[in-house]
Design a binder for these strands. Structure first.
Length: 427
RNA sequence: GGAGAGGUGGCAGAGUGGUCGAAUGUACCUGACUCGAAAUCAGGCGUAGGUGGAAGCCUACCGUGGGUUCGAAUCCCACCCUCUCCGCCA
């Protein structure tokens, strides 16, 4: 959420910066709402002040056993106006809140301008895509030939966009998550979190998934209780650890890593990536989250992204890093790096991690603060990134490490996690 | 699931209808004392919004949302959450 003061003070400047990400800010609408609010709020507060003063007089007069009917009449006179004003003001404030809650974050100044993914800027490439002496197969062919990937079973059990893996591939999937967790906790200083997979609406509002993106979520309705939502990413439960908290400056930075399944309805992506495990209703992800002081967030963003890159490097998977342009960034992000892994069957780099700095955008929604040098509570900055998406990492390992006979070499550092196994083949 | 207790400022903890945004303690900040520190003493110290050049003034907030009242932290209703005991359960 943007600071409503910023909208009041520099509406045109905000609109200009939001236009770079393809968002049209309804300036006229905001000005109308806010000026109406201002008039009404001033009037309402005057009436409240008068009522409070008169009510105090009642108390004083009564303690002196004086007649109070004249004062009571006067209060009654302003009460009707006060009540309609208060009701109208509440409604206006709610409209303003709703308006601001749907405005996306401002892009950081160094984010490249652009309209779509075509305008994203490649920052670096790591590794050299392997040249194959045979035509590399994609992960679906490989997995099904191994007898360890069964999409038909997944469709029968649940429906489309689910997957089922078994045997050594299921073990490899587990090993990847373990390896990522171990690396981030032992080498990068993250504290491991185990979190709920069902969260309430307030948490989703905090990280920015609600109110705008409810269609992307799986929602559990409960007749006698608040609805719960399946988490679309561990970002939601983990970042919300600090919701409504005031942290001490010494407690920062907080660095959390959390492995969870993620659930996405993928509404609006029908027909995209329908084959295989690339785009699923359910997938596992190891998520990195940092909660930092305001001035530290840009450096933390570089650091967190490097931590995610480290996993790809240790697994010796070629990748590139791109900076998302203004038009391609997510709603809450101030700046995002995507990491894209090389998939030989597609002859393309595909997203495997997204690392974002949200600045104070989520913190303002969550009221997550710390006591800084000035002693006053200040909003923290929040960041997160995939470190990495486990399912897509499995896909990348299968495709990059495949042999001509359809077996899969196990990346060196994963071998201890698989009991020393060097090769995955038909059971 | 049943019974009971409770949610107040960074923390602890008073306050059961009338200048209560809230005693007190503690933490923190400033000053005095000190070579310095501790102890002591004095003062300050919640959040958000409005208005004003500023000092200031005003409004809202005592889990959340409603209600009663001239006036609500305090009374009533609903909800959320926490704790204790019992039951059940991995």
């Amino acid at each position: 959420m943007l600071d409503i003061q910023l909208l009041r003070n520099d509406l045109d400047g905000v609109a200009e910066r939001l236009a770079t990400r393809g968002y049209t800010l309804d300036c006229a609408g905001f000005r109308r709402l806010d000026s109406e609010r201002k008039t009404l709020q001033t009037r309402t507060q005057d009436l409240q002040a008068r009522r409070n003063a008169l009510s105090r007089q009642v108390g004083v007069a009564k303690s002196r056993a004086e007649d109070v009917t004249a004062i009571l009449d006067e209060v009654a006179a302003c009460k009707a106006e006060l009540e309609t004003n208060e009701a109208h003001l509440d409604q206006l404030l709610a409209e303003l809140d709703a308006f601001v809650a749907r405005v996306p974050n401002l892009p950081q100044a160094d984010v490249p301008l652009g309209r779509s993914a075509d305008d994203n800027v490649e920052n670096k490439r790591w590794g050299t895509p392997r040249s194959f002496a045979f035509t590399p197969r994609d992960h679906v062919d490989l997995g099904e030939a191994l007898g360890q990937m069964d999409f038909a079973a997944a469709v029968k059990i649940s429906g489309t966009r689910f997957s089922l893996i078994k045997g050594q591939l299921a073990h490899l999937h587990r090993a990847l998550a373990q390896f990522m967790l171990d690396t981030h906790t032992a080498q990068h200083g993250y504290a491991e979190i185990y979190s709920p997979y069902l969260v309430n609406a307030a948490s989703l509002f905090g990280t920015g998934q609600l109110p705008k993106f409810e269609d992307d979520l799986f929602k559990i309705l409960r007749p006698e209780a608040e609805p719960l939502y399946l988490i679309p990413t561990a970002e939601v439960p983990v970042t919300n650890i600090v919701r409504n908290e005031i942290l001490s400056a010494e407690a920062l930075p907080l660095k959390f890593v959390c492995h969870t399944p993620c659930f996405r309805s993928e509404a609006g992506s029908y027909g995209r990536d329908t084959r295989g495990m690339i785009r699923q209703h359910q997938f596992d992800k190891v998520e990195l989250v940092q909660i930092v002081a305001a001035e530290a967030s840009s450096a933390a963003h570089e650091e967190l992204t490097a931590h995610a890159e480290r996993i790809l490097e240790l697994l010796e998977l070629p990748y590139r890093r791109v900076t998302l342009c203004t038009g391609d960034m997510g709603f809450s992000s101030a700046k995002t790096y995507d990491l894209e892994v090389w998939l030989p069957a597609q002859q393309a780099y595909r997203e495997i991690s997204s690392c974002s700095n949200f600045a104070a955008f989520q913190a303002r929604r969550m009221q997550a603060r710390y006591r800084g040098a000035r002693g006053r509570p200040e909003l923290v900055h929040t960041l997160n990134g995939s470190g990495l998406a486990v399912g897509r990492t499995l896909v990348a390992v299968l495709e990059n490490y495949q042999n001509a006979d359809g077996s899969i070499a196990v990346p060196r550092l994963l071998q201890p996690y698989l009991g020393g196994r060097q090769r995955i083949a038909v059971d």
